[in-house]
C-alpha cells in the first residue's frame, strides 16, 4: 500500500486515554470513535486531519490501557499509518490486529516534522519525506507478525485455525 499524506506530529508517551478518553468507550463504532480521536490530547484535534494523513510520534506511543478502541479511533479518523520512535507493547499488537500500519523508526523520527508531506510504502517499510527529500528505511516486522499480516490479520488467521480443527 502506498500512502501519501500530511504528517501530524505528537509527543512522547502518548497514552491511550489521550488517543480516546474513556468517556467515549461506550461504543464500538469506528466512525464515532474516529470523530473523537486524540480528544484527550487536544479537543478538536481530529479536525486537522484529512484522509490518508499520517501520525508521527516520539517514544512509547500508545502506552496505558489495552483499549483496542485506540487503534480503531485512529483508523476511524482516516489515518492508516502511525510512525513512531517506539510503540508500547499492547498497542503495537492491537494496531496489527486492527490493520493499522505501525512503523518503528527510532531516532530517525527527528527527520519528520509536523506538516511535512510523506509518502509511505507500507510493504517495503520505506518512508519518503517529500518536503525534505529524506528517506527512512524501517526495521522489518518480526517474522511471525509478518505471517499474521500475510494471512490478512488475526481474525482470518484464527478463522483458519478454527476451520482446521473441525
Amino acid at each position: 500500500m502506498l500512502v501519501t499524506g500530511k504528517a501530524h506530529k505528537v509527543g512522547a508517551h502518548i497514552d491511550t486515554d489521550a488517543i480516546i478518553p474513556a468517556r467515549f468507550l461506550v461504543t464500538t463504532d469506528t466512525k464515532v470513535l474516529g470523530s473523537n480521536c486524540m480528544e484527550g490530547l487536544e479537543p478538536g484535534w481530529v479536525k486537522r486531519v484529512s484522509a490518508n494523513d499520517i501520525m508521527v510520534a516520539e517514544e512509547n506511543f500508545g502506552c496505558g490501557s489495552s483499549r483496542e478502541h485506540a487503534p480503531i479511533a485512529i483508523l476511524g479518523a482516516g489515518i492508516p499509518v502511525v510512525v513512531a520512535k517506539s510503540f508500547a507493547r499492547i498497542f503495537y499488537r492491537n494496531g496489527f490486529n486492527m490493520g493499522l500500519v505501525l512503523l518503528e523508526v527510532g531516532d530517525d523520527v527527528a527527520k519528520l516534522k509536523d506538516g511535512d508531506k510523506l509518502e509511505v510504502d507500507t510493504e517495503a517499510g520505506v518512508i519518503k519525506n517529500l518536503s525534505t527529500g529524506e528517506t527512512i528505511i524501517c526495521a522489518k516486522v518480526p517474522a511471525f507478525m509478518q505471517e499474521l499480516l500475510d494471512a490478512g490479520g488475526l481474525v482470518p488467521y484464527v478463522k483458519k485455525r478454527l476451520a482446521a480443527r473441525q
Partner: peptide
C-alpha cells in the same frame, strides 16, 4: 498480561495465544 480485544477473542476461541 493485558492484550487487546481481538487477541482476547482469538484466545477465547482457540484457548491459546502467541507470545514473544
Amino acid at each position: 498480561t493485558g492484550m487487546g480485544s481481538t487477541d482476547i477473542a482469538g484466545a477465547m476461541a482457540l484457548g491459546e495465544t502467541w507470545f514473544k
